[in-house]
Amino acid sequence: MTEPMTDIAAKTTPLVKVENLRKLYPVSKNIFREAHDFVHAVDDINFEIAPGESLGLVGESGCGKSTTGRMLTKLTDATSGQILLDDKGELIDIAHIQRSDMRRFRRRVQMIFQDPFESLNPRRTVYDTVAESLTVQRIGRVQEREERVAELLHRVGLTPPESFLFRYPHELSGGQRQRVAIARALVIDPTFVVADEPTSMLDVSIRISIMDLMLKLADEFNVSYLYITHDLAVARYMCDRIAVMYLGKIVEIAPTEELLANPRHPYTRALLSAVPVPDPAYKRERVDIKGGISKALNPPPVCRFIERCPRATDQCRTSDHPGFDDLGNGHLVACYNL
C-alpha cells in the first residue's frame, strides 16, 4: 500500500513516519503455553507527522490511541512495523532501536502524561523532576542544569522560578503540576512530544491556559505533538490534523477543519454527532450507530466497524479491512462506501 503524502507532509520530509505498526497483547499466556488469543490493540496503522505539526489521535477508550503513544515513546515494544524518526536527516527506527541509539532517541522524543497527580514522583522536588533527563544523560554541570530548569519553569509560567524549584508536587495545584510536566518534557529540547490527554484531568478554566501554553511552546521549541485525546473539541483547538481510531485501526485522517466539516467515515460521523455542544440553541444532527464498543480479541480480517455500521454492505463483509482512500487535501478514509 503506498502512503499518499498529505499537504503538510509533502513540503518537507516527515519527522515521524509510522508504517504498518501493530501491537498484539496475548491473552492468558504462561511459561508453558504459547498464547493463542490476542487483543489487537493497534493493528497495522500508518501515519506521518511533519516537523512542527501536531497530529491529534482521537478515539474512545480502548481504541489503541494510548498504546500507539506508548510505542512511539518506546514504553511499549511494537509487535511489528516501523516507527521512523528523523534525527537531523538520519532515520532512526524506534521500533527496532539499537541500545546505543537509545540515549539519542530519549533526547528527541518526550511525553506529557494525563494525570498531573500521578505523573510526578511525590518524593522528588520540581527541580529533580524537571532535571531528571539532564541528570540521567549527564548533560551540563549541576549549576547549568539548575539554570536550565529555572529557565524552563519561567517559560512554562511558573514564576518566579526560584519559588517553585524546590517544591514538592503536593505543594502545587493541578495546573501547576501539569506545567512542571511540560517543563520536564521540553527541558532536553526534544523534536517530538507525545501528549496523552494532558488536559483531561484539569478544570475547564485551567485547561485553556495549559493548551495555549503547549501551542506557544510548540512554536518556541519547534516541537511536533502527537496529541492523544478523546475530546474532539480539544483536538480541534490543538491539532493541525486529526486521525480517528477505532478498535486499533485508523479509520480517517484529515486536516482538522476538513475532518470536522466533512467527516466521511461512518464512525467519525457518529463520533462527531455525539459531542455535546456548548450552545443550547444548537441542534445536533443525530447519527445512530448500533451497540457499544467491544474488544479487538482475534478480530476477523474484515472492517472493524462492520457490526455497528449503518452502511455495511456485502463488500464490507467479504473484503479485508479497507485501506485508505485519498480524497485530496490530505483527507484519507478507510471505508468502502463513501
Partner: peptide, 9 residues
C-alpha cells in the same frame, strides 16, 4: 512517573 523516568532515559 515511572514511565516518565524511563522516557528521561
Amino acid at each position: 512517573f515511572i514511565d516518565a523516568a524511563r522516557i528521561a532515559g
